[in-house]
Design a protein around this nucleic acid. Structure first.
Lengths: 129, 129
DNA sequence: GTCTTGACAAGAATCATTCTTAAGTGGTAT
DNA sequence: ATACCACTTAAGAATGATTCTTGTCAAGAC
């Protein structure tokens, strides 16, 4: 946790609570999920504070934001390159850790500089079947 | 075009204009792009009509909507399974037609019924480099 | 011709996210 | 310990994409 101390990054209680909630969290929560949880400890916390902190954490590379769910943004404390499996019904998201060798075919790669890729698998989860 | 005639699907001038704009369109336009274009021909057209039609066309399987751009939904007349390459700077989207053999590893596929997958490549386009 | 169904325009409503403002606070330098 | 300053916070307003509502209209079914 100490590794988070750096210039322009203050460890406020609100921020620590958000980080704690996210740490090791595999549920890919939305801003609202985070807000509802952290508000239990900090009843005066504002929604904007959640967004501010998420954006700051993302900038610093501590978390990443996912566009998997078209309805709302989701946040993932796992910043390593991995993929996702999403249930079309309940929208639950499961990590897929595997190193797929995918590359844009040369003839279609029109001078694009490819920096990364993300695979989204979609289907139906066991509960929704 | 005649193939679109079916029960509960009326070919109104507005709808035809939207379909014409989308047909063969490789730019993955947003609802606003479509609205701005079609309004040239139908100045009284409302934004809601664009959304209504896009949703209807999507339901009928004539177009698909993409969540690639976190800012706004984009629409694609190409409903065949393909992937996308997106420029992180200007947000332009290019189709990637290739059949990648990707599968969720057995040990992680916890009884999930996988129906499909979509690969998103991201990077910098020639213009933005 | 009348009925039914789907489509239209216009604008209000919704909802996630961002912005604004004023007041507060952590961490560094003093 | 104190003071300062950049970063944070809370609160609410603002934004912007999308959806919903309402009243009207048109096409095809009967």
């Amino acid at each position: 946790m100490e590794r988070y101390r750096e210039k322009g990054f203050k460890l406020t209680p609100q921020r620590i609570a958000i980080m704690k909630f996210l740490e090791g969290n595999k549920n890919h929560p939305s801003a609202e999920d985070i807000y509802l949880y952290v508000r239990k400890t900090f009843p005066t916390m504002s929604f904007a504070t959640v967004y501010n902190n998420l954006e700051t954490l993302r900038e610093k590379g501590h978390i990443s934001s996912l566009s998997i769910d078209p309805e709302r943004r989701r946040y993932d404390p796992d910043t390593s390159s991995h993929h996702h499996l999403i249930c079309l019904k309940c929208k639950m998201v499961v990590d897929v850790h595997a190193d797929f060798k995918v590359n844009v075919p040369e003839e279609q790669n029109t001078a694009f500089e490819v920096l990364g890729s993300h695979i989204e698998f979609y289907g139906t989860c066991p509960e929704c079947k």
